[in-house]
Design a protein around this nucleic acid. Structure first.
Lengths: 239, 239
DNA sequence: TAGGATACCTACCCATGAGTATGATTGAGC
DNA sequence: GCTCAATCATACTCATGGGTAGGTATCCTA
């Protein structure tokens, strides 16, 4: 971005291990690390208090620096939110990439993606990814984010369709099923706070089990007839 | 709330049709109507732009009045959000009440509740109910809302447990299942915007169908064996 | 028709918080 | 030792928006 002079190779030196620019490069790496720390701190604060209830002073305080220092690493609060967002979404995209070549039925690939999905939503970037309002971002950034989200949505739909084709998934409406799956997982970001006994992947696995099995009894007396409701239609009158 | 004098019956009059207080009562009714209009307008704006991106001037403008007029009907912006919230949650509580005495298996009662749930989330109060951050509310109001949400959550869990008992629902983890169901439905508030071809109840019904049937093939060759994946493990190499 | 309640407006206050101008300090390289 | 860039702090500016003070028109009751 800034027109820092591109010194290294220009001098013709063989780029030895102990290059005189090593320190400089280290400093650059430090900068990247610090920048990441800023973004992570922002994610944590957004997660705790919401975007609008978090001031840049808060974020700076959490890092034990001052606001201008934060601005030294990012250009605006909006960009901070955007970066947090992308960091979260990137985890899910990685899940799709990992799974693409697995030689298993589509349903199992889908399950693997969903476990990573759950992990991502339960991570500290989960809030930004799921709960951030696109109205808080500029039109350009909002479009960018919508595109990323859409990619994920269509990735899930594609896995569902593939599963229907290879017989590993019961024929269903791919769009609606994707919405239901994504919704259940996204919602983790809302309640995963107090009860942290399970990891995101474990929760996702539990959801997958529920979705796969279905709520209607399987082995039993087939479609529930009206003979069942002899009693027990209300669970004890006490409340 | 305010200590308005309780005039009507105190005078001993037989409450004739043309009571001199009729106008007064009419005015009160008007006031209630207007207040509802304010809350509804707020809900719509919050829904469109988010809580923090909506100013009270915006809400007033939408009603073609000025900000102090809005304050004539509500005491604060926070209260507006709270009222919107309660309006949404109340729809769901009503669903539970309606369903309580139905003489059908718990699964069907659950389905009926979920359809109302979907309707509520897709309504104009859906955003407030689902996406509003409790950090935006005072501790007291936040507690109140959490209690209301918890009631709904436990209502769903109870129906699931009853369904498992009366045999209409496959044995499952009631807590996790309730989270999955509520998450899928709540998420409607995020995407129900562009594509309004379906009503909230129809979406909920589609979700119920998915949840009931399950993704794993039913009639087929039972648990998916690895014989299926002959080809079609990747959907065309293009992209 | 006076007196009061209702309903609404104009014109303000002021806290908050995003973003910046400016300058001090530090350390690397020459 | 000098220079220059990187880094960070102090101390601002300024727009936004929640909330209010105080006034006015209207309608109802007595």
């Amino acid at each position: 971005m800034n027109s820092r002079r591109r010194t290294p190779a220009a001098t013709g030196k063989p780029a030895a291990a102990a290059s005189p620019w090593r320190a400089s490069r280290e400093r650059l790496r430090d900068r990247a690390l610090k920048r990441d720390a800023v973004i992570q701190a922002a994610a944590r604060e957004f997660n705790r208090k919401g975007y609008h209830n978090t001031s840049l002073d808060d974020i700076a305080a959490r890092l034990e620096v001052t606001k201008p220092t934060v601005y030294y690493y990012v250009t605006s609060k909006e960009q901070l939110l955007f970066e947090c967002f992308v960091a979260g979404v990137e985890q899910i995209h990685a899940a799709f990439r990992d799974v693409r070549t697995l030689p298993v039925p589509a349903r199992e690939r889908l399950n693997a993606v969903l476990r990573h999905y759950g992990e991502a939503v339960a991570s500290e970037f989960g809030w930004c990814m799921v709960r951030a309002e696109d109205q808080d971002l500029s039109p350009a950034m909002s479009r960018h984010i919508k595109a990323l989200k859409s990619e994920i949505d269509h990735g899930i739909r594609r896995l569902i369709r593939e599963g229907v084709q290879d017989g590993s998934i019961e024929p269903c409406d791919a769009k609606m099923t994707a919405f239901a799956l994504a919704g259940a997982l996204n919602w983790i970001a809302h309640w995963y706070r107090e009860d942290r006994t399970l990891t995101g992947a474990q929760i996702a696995q539990a959801f997958v089990t529920i979705f796969e099995g279905g709520l209607r009894p399987r082995g039993g007396p087939a479609p529930v007839s009206s003979s069942v409701r002899t009693r027990r239609t209300r669970g004890a009158s006490a409340r």
